[in-house]
Amino acid sequence: MPRATDMPASPVLVRKAGPEDAETLFRLTAGLIEDHLPGQEPWTNAEAIKANGFGADPLFEALIAERNGRPIGFVSFFRGYAGWRGQPMGIVHALYVVPDERRSGAARALMAGVARIALERGWIRIELFVEEGRTAIAFYERIGMRDLRHRHMRLEGEALERLARSDL
């Protein structure tokens, strides 16, 4: 199959995802998981995505990129707080473009969509976490993000439970 960069490009349309997009977001999330952990089954499903993103208290928002009516990528994000600045900020949780559309401008269009939302809402910045050695790092740097050289730490499972039960 020809890559998107080999064909005349029709425009990428970026739109806000709604509850009717839960299955599409699930399929794209499954693609992201497959990229990072080949063979790993998704830990979520379309119903959870619909409930968590489009219920009374949404935990995230998402934008979907489409070309010719076909979903080709998504970005999910949520509002955070920049404590040192005392300002709201955006945190990108996931950015994914299907393999045959990579390097087609879809990822840039999705991130530009988040940037517009950030400015509209008065968010001071956008942050995201990316694994060491991922090729996406060069993309993020090209769009103006800078590497803060911070470690991404996680507390979960038994360690989370153990700490929660400990005396403070």
Rank of each mutant, 00 (worst) to 15 (best):
G157Q: 13
L160N: 12
I49K: 00
V12G: 01
N52M: 11
L95T: 12
R116M: 09
F54E: 03
E158A: 15
R154V: 15
R102E: 02
E23P: 04
L168S: 11
R85I: 03
G122C: 08
P19R: 15
S104W: 13
R102W: 10
G122W: 02
R142H: 14
L110E: 04
D147N: 15
G144F: 00
Q87P: 01
R165A: 15
P19S: 14
S10V: 06
R15T: 05
E120P: 02
G18I: 07
R154G: 09
L128S: 03
R103W: 01
L32M: 11
I117S: 02
G80P: 01
A17I: 04
M153W: 12
V98K: 06
D167Q: 12
E131L: 13
A22K: 06
G39N: 10
I126R: 00
V130R: 00
F26Y: 15
Q87L: 15
L168F: 08
D21C: 06
A164C: 14
F54R: 12
R108M: 05
G122D: 07
F74I: 00
E23M: 06
A118Y: 05
R149A: 14
D167K: 14
G73P: 07
R102G: 03
T24Q: 06
R3D: 09
R146S: 09
F74G: 00
M111W: 06
L63D: 01
E61K: 12
R134K: 11
A51V: 11
R125F: 00
I49D: 04
I33P: 02
L32R: 08
D167I: 09
L155T: 09
W84I: 12
L119F: 06
M7Y: 06
R85L: 14
I91K: 00
F129Q: 12
A82R: 04
D35W: 07
G53P: 10
R134T: 07
D57H: 14
G113K: 06
V92P: 00
E101D: 12
G39E: 08
